[in-house]
């Protein structure tokens, strides 16, 4: 089953205007809006969708609003969509919506949908110079620019709480063909669907109640992640954890509290794996969660008269 990863995550919220401001400040582009909500896209067309929690068109809530209400996975082609429909129909309702989305529910109770992916191809510029690297940043192109919003490239992953972690993992592995990339033995599995090499598009965490833990889009590189996070702090948003670099997945991270019911992260440079990869099983701790961790600090420089 060539599932690529989430094309869109849908949130039921109680303060639409605050969520619109937050996603705009994050760097996503509002592409359509109605009284009941709006869609915010990254460069490749993947999206965060915010709707009023009371919207009767949303799947039922799994926890108090605001929280995640729907996940729309992009799949490679129609045969994959048909195969998912046939597989899930064996033991649960599957409905084909007028919007081309096949809708069902996972074993924790999270709504899941599938569509032939609507991702657009992105042509990323060459950002960095590494000695010996041929495809470097072009001559006379300046890297240290501080103007304008940071480009947000693509929806990366969602992290969900699951009370029955073994059952939650088994559903994605056995029914939808997800691979377990690595496991935090005291939390849960990092999983990637078969249509992507990304270390994870889904991370499940054992917890007493279901709900959103966090979600994130990819930015280009570490520079863009630090610049995006810096500007986000300056706009008054509260940092939860970061900036740092994870060990499992290697992704650089910076997490912020958000009005969506879980954290929203800036993320970049995740590892890629294929099926020859053997999962690591390690307990999560401060030591195993990051290679390094920094904290935001105000700008400072030595005084003009000092040397």
């Amino acid at each position: 089953m060539k599932i690529l990863g989430p094309d869109a995550l849908v949130f039921g919220v109680d303060d639409l205007d605050a969520c619109y401001r937050y996603l705009t400040d994050y760097g996503l582009k509002k592409v359509d809006s109605a009284p009941s909500g709006a869609r915010f896209e990254a460069l490749d067309g993947t999206a965060a969708v915010v709707r009023r929690a009371s919207d009767p068109g949303l799947p039922p809530p799994i926890s108090a609003a605001p929280n995640i209400r729907d996940q729309i996975y992009g799949v490679a082609d129609q045969p994959t969509l048909d195969a998912i429909g046939a597989e899930l129909s064996k033991d649960r309702d599957v409905k084909a919506g007028g919007d081309g989305v096949l809708r069902s529910v996972d074993d924790t109770g999270y709504a899941i949908g599938f569509q032939v992916t609507q991702r657009r191809k992105i042509d990323a510029p060459r950002y960095i110079n590494v000695p010996g690297m041929e495809l470097h940043r072009p001559v006379n192109v300046i890297a240290a620019v501080d103007n304008g919003p940071t480009p947000i490239y693509s929806l990366s992953h969602v992290v969900l709480f699951a009370p029955d972690i073994e059952r939650a993992e088994k559903f994605y592995a056995q029914r939808l063909g997800f691979r377990t990339a690595d496991v935090f033995t005291n939390l849960g599995p990092f999983m990637r669907p078969a249509g992507t090499l990304e270390h994870h598009t889904l991370f499940l965490i054992k917890a007493p109640k279901p709900g959103l833990q966090h979600f994130t889009f990819h930015v280009a590189d570490l520079n863009d992640m630090l610049r995006a996070g810096w500007n986000f702090v300056k706009k008054g948003y509260k940092s939860f954890w970061g900036p740092g670099r994870h060990i499992l997945g290697s992704n650089n991270f910076w997490y912020f509290n958000s009005p969506f019911g879980g954290l929203m992260e800036f993320d970049c440079d995740m590892d890629l794996h294929d099926d020859s990869w053997k999962p690591r099983y390690i307990p999560a701790s401060a030591q195993t969660s990051q290679t390094y961790l920094f904290q935001f600090a105000e700008k400072w420089a030595p005084g003009d008269q000092k040397h």
């Binding site: 109680d14 303060d15 605050a18 008054g236 509260k238 912020f256 009005p259 019911g261 879980g262």
Partner: peptide, 21 residues
């Protein structure tokens, strides 16, 4: 809080932790 003084649900009836809901 996720931004200055944002500690409550929009209707003001409950305290909400905007880290994990």
């Amino acid at each position: 809080d996720y931004a200055q003084d944002q500690f409550l649900s929009a209707d003001g009836r409950e305290i909400v932790c905007y880290a994990h809901g």
